[in-house]
Design a protein around this nucleic acid. Structure first.
Lengths: 247, 247
DNA sequence: TTGACAACCTTACGCCGTACGGTACCTTAC
DNA sequence: GTAAGGTACCGTACGGCGTAAGGTTGTCAA
């Protein structure tokens, strides 16, 4: 087809895993995760689908990769006296990252692999909690309470906004169609979503987050009443050596 | 190519939307939501794929339908004085329903339609909160805090157990492979998941749930001080009752 | 007997992920 | 100069997916 000279001149940016992942993210950001197919991605890169397999091992590899990129965007909790403020900021940063890439939360939750960025985030948050005086057990619970809230909250918002984007006005139509007399509270709730003024400036996410943080602080101060910060009463238990047979 | 007589004798249970949905649920329960395809479902019913379209309008219709069935399994919060106990029981019931059908949480969160069972559940919970003395605004926030926690918590557990089921020992191998010295807290966290004894009998889900409920009760009793003369404001202890539910 | 109707099937289209096997170009060695 | 080998990319094909369009069969009322 094209003469060698043309082709040489044209395609001298020879792809890379980085570029593949960035483009995949862009597609997912724009058209949703379902619009990301190998063929579509290849097309975007001016290449055939199978060529991508020189840089990634499968589509799952791509999905893992773009999730890692999102997780890497999260601001890790800083050190210092105020554990609450540090954790709060990190959680909001997490929330924001997921809001920027609405497909990410669903991917994270659907049993995808844990990459280095994810481990680093968890390590930072867990460490920050331990450092603040939480016991190992309490830290475990605190982590999951925070993580659940972040994920659940963001997933809901993502689903809602996806629907609102796909079909604006669908919510109004839906609520007008149902017997309001039978579901007054539901109607009220939907109304609150439609008229943002009712939400008094505090997002649903931050409200729940503060609820959890307040509860945690109470537990923390109750369990270590006088000690200021470093009170690692228990040494960090090493992960068990292979007591079981290493496969 | 069976003869007419055979066919008449054999297939005289002529399908129905109910039967289609039940079978779809069974497939999803057993092999995960990805294993549910129209062809597979039809095969299970001894029928061709296109025949299903006489009972459902699309695959999404099926997904909506099975989600509704799951939601209908949730125990609605009962009336009475103790709003906290009522909401708590309902939340745990929700959690259990999602645990029985691990694909459901992901479907609910991915922008699927809201059916009557879902509306009924929301109405009951919202109404119960209002009745307990929460303001409209507070009820809105409380609902989302609870919902986020239930969804987030269950989604995480679903993903984790799906991975553990698909490849038992993957977690151990993963944690042994990473540099424990660099990620001591992460290693500790994983260890806590592997040795359930560390979890002292209170599930991650219930811990977070009680954190939220305690926080809500505090807000409630602060905003309506006179109505809290009942004994409901007991100290923040949670009942140590093990939520046993043989599935 | 006829004809309407419900229940179910056949075929086909355009997607999808990816296994397998090329081919074109670049670098390096002789 | 030329041959070898590696890197980057492409063509073809397979089995699966959801579903549009239309065909066939069995049942039953008129």
């Amino acid at each position: 087809m094209a003469r060698p000279a043309d082709r040489v001149a044209e395609r001298r940016v020879p792809l890379s895993k980085e570029r593949v992942l960035r483009t995949a993210m862009a597609i997912a950001d724009q058209g949703g995760i379902d619009s990301l197919s190998m063929r579509r991605l290849a097309q975007e890169l001016g290449v055939e689908a199978m060529s991508l397999y020189h840089y990634v091992s499968s589509k799952d590899d791509i999905l893992n990769g773009i999730v890692e990129i999102v997780v890497a965007e999260i601001e890790l909790p800083s050190g210092g006296k105020d554990w609450r403020a540090a954790v709060r900021r990190s959680a909001i940063s997490f929330h924001d990252a997921l809001a920027r890439h609405r497909w990410a939360a669903n991917l994270i939750m659907s049993g995808i692999g844990v990459g280095t960025a994810r481990v680093r985030y968890m390590e930072a948050l867990l460490g920050r909690l331990r450092e603040a005086g939480f016991s190992a057990n309490m830290t475990h619970h605190a982590y999951h309470a925070l993580d659940s809230h972040i994920m659940g909250s963001t997933l809901w918002a993502a689903g809602y906004s996806a629907l609102a984007k796909a079909d604006p006005g669908a919510v109004q139509r839906f609520v007008q169609k149902l017997p309001v007399a039978d579901y007054p509270y539901f109607a009220e709730h939907v109304d609150q979503h439609l008229t943002k003024s009712a939400r008094d400036g505090v997002s649903e996410f931050e409200f729940g987050l503060d609820l959890i943080l307040d509860g945690l602080e109470k537990v923390r101060s109750a369990s270590s009443p006088r000690s200021s910060t470093r009170r690692t009463d228990r040494p960090i238990r090493r992960s068990r050596r292979p007591t079981r047979r290493p496969s």
